[in-house]
Simulated assay, not measured.
Amino acid sequence: MTVETGSAVEFLVTPDAWKSLPKMPEAEYPGTEGFIGDVYENPGGSVMCSGYFELRHTDAPLYYEYEYDEMKVVLEGEFLLENKETGQKTVAKKHDAIFFPKGSKIYFTTPDYALAFYAGHRDSTLL
């Protein structure tokens, strides 16, 4: 990767972007309380999108199939993660980093509440 030294590029800061996230559609995620929103959608032509994911406790797990690579960092609470295809189960706690490779089929639950920041290698239309 080359960096142009002749042009200046500004960085972005968006305060409080984790507040008031849109609820994930009930039709796609029945019985769950998930909230998600991109803060940056392919900014400046980047191949990345990033934002926040919040999950509240329900009896139903939130199932998500990744069509792209994504990383998450748990900011609050904990996520119980399960991939039923591989049998993998784990708990991701505050400050843990998570990588979901493209094709991952993940069931998310939380005993109470969890909030994560994510960055995905995807176009903004895939959320």
Rank of each mutant, 00 (worst) to 15 (best):
Y68I: 09
P61E: 01
G44E: 11
T58N: 10
R56K: 13
S50K: 05
E41L: 15
L81R: 02
G51R: 00
L75I: 09
N83W: 00
S50N: 11
Y64E: 08
M71P: 02
V73H: 04
G45H: 12
S46F: 02
A60K: 02
Y68D: 09
A60Y: 04
Y66M: 13
G37S: 11
V39D: 05
V74T: 02
Y40P: 09
E54F: 13
D69S: 08
M48Y: 15
G44C: 10
V47K: 08
E67D: 13
T32V: 04
K84M: 06
D59E: 14
E67K: 14
Y64F: 15
G44I: 13
E82L: 03
E85R: 10
D38G: 07
A60R: 00
L55Y: 06
R56M: 14
Y66C: 11
G45S: 10
E76P: 03
E82K: 00
G37K: 13
Y52G: 00
V73M: 09
E78H: 02
E67W: 12
Y68F: 12
E33S: 15
G44A: 14
I36C: 15
Y64W: 14
H57F: 13
G87P: 00
G51C: 05
Y52N: 03
E70W: 05
P43Y: 02
L80T: 08
N83H: 06
G37N: 11
